[in-house]
């Protein structure tokens, strides 16, 4: 690892270039576009709240942008007792 680091040292410019290329490709695509993440968040929460009660501040939304694939993670904390309500409904 140390040897590896010694060889790597001084060569950070290519990393900078690659990070910028990925970031700017994304930012240019979303420039002057509506806030996609905001819209998704609102619509997903609207759909879920129609069926399940939850507190809006117990919702976590994470986005991880990769080179070819990005993931959107929506984590909603639902109070206990929801399972029973669901069983009754079905």
């Amino acid at each position: 690892m140390t040897l590896f680091k010694i060889f790597r040292r001084g060569g950070s410019a290519p990393i900078a270039r690659e990070r910028l290329q990925i970031l700017l490709a994304h930012e240019r695509g979303t420039r002057n576009q509506p806030d996609l993440l905001g819209i998704l968040r609102e619509e997903i929460l609207a759909v879920i709240s129609r069926h399940v009660p939850f507190e809006p501040d117990k919702v976590q939304i994470k986005l991880d942008r990769g080179k070819s694939v990005s993931t959107l993670e929506v984590d909603i904390e639902i109070p206990n007792g929801f399972g029973a309500a669901l069983a009754k409904a079905s």
Binding site: G10, G11, S12, A13, A16, R17, L24
Partner: peptide, 16 residues
Amino acid sequence: RAARGEMMAIEDVLEI
């Protein structure tokens, strides 16, 4: 520093 790869080269910035 650019020659040693520590700083982005002019061509990198121009390309981006």
